[in-house]
């Protein structure tokens, strides 16, 4: 079983990204379990979404405390407390203009950075970075397959579908280049 953590600020689309990722893994034939924090969630506050992926039905009903992979929408959230929720060899993709070397993380964690805002703006998506980040994350994780993820985005995006798909593919190419 793989456990994935997506962290962002309320309104950034981290929870939507989590649902899209879960849908794509499901479409690829995997069993998934995805849930998001709620209750205190409002624009600007930290929110997280978690996804479990397995070839067999998932029975666990507890929090993800040792994620295999982390997608972080806001570098200011990438602190020690968040890192403690990932495995020492976890894959981390973070939205930042900085270089990976500037993130001092312990263990064997692999950190990749992607400038989500630059990619979003280049595709007329303003501050909506989730499609671009999902692209980079899928490339780094090598799963779910790009065609499954892009089909999921295409089927579920209510607005600016071509722009979101283009941002996803741009993010994917960037991810392939760095991971």
């Amino acid at each position: 079983m793989r456990e994935i953590l997506i962290v962002g600020r309320g309104g950034q689309g981290a929870q939507t990204a989590g649902n899209l990722l879960a849908q794509a893994f499901f479409s690829a034939g995997q069993y998934v379990q995805s849930f998001a924090t709620y209750g205190g969630a409002r624009r600007g506050t930290p929110v997280s979404s978690t996804i479990r992926v397995d070839a067999r039905p998932i029975r666990l009903r507890c929090d993800v405390t040792q994620a295999d992979a982390l997608l972080c929408f806001d570098a200011s959230l990438l602190d020690q407390a968040l890192l403690n929720r990932t495995r020492p060899e976890a894959l981390i993709v973070v939205n930042s203009v900085r270089s990976p070397e500037e993130f001092a993380v312990a263990g064997e964690r692999r950190v990749y950075t992607i400038d989500g805002f630059k990619l979003a703006e280049a595709h007329n998506l303003g501050r909506f970075i989730n499609s671009a980040l999902l692209g980079a994350f899928c490339a780094a994780l090598r799963d779910p397959p790009a065609e499954v993820m892009s089909r999921t985005i295409s089927e579920t995006t209510p607005d600016r579908r071509p722009e979101n798909l283009a941002a996803f593919h741009a993010g994917f190419r960037t991810g392939e280049g760095i991971a």
Partner: peptide, 12 residues
């Protein structure tokens, strides 16, 4: 059914 772990968990 339990809040969160069942009510809001997306699954097969």
């Amino acid at each position: 059914h339990d809040a969160f772990y069942v009510s809001h968990a997306l699954e097969t």
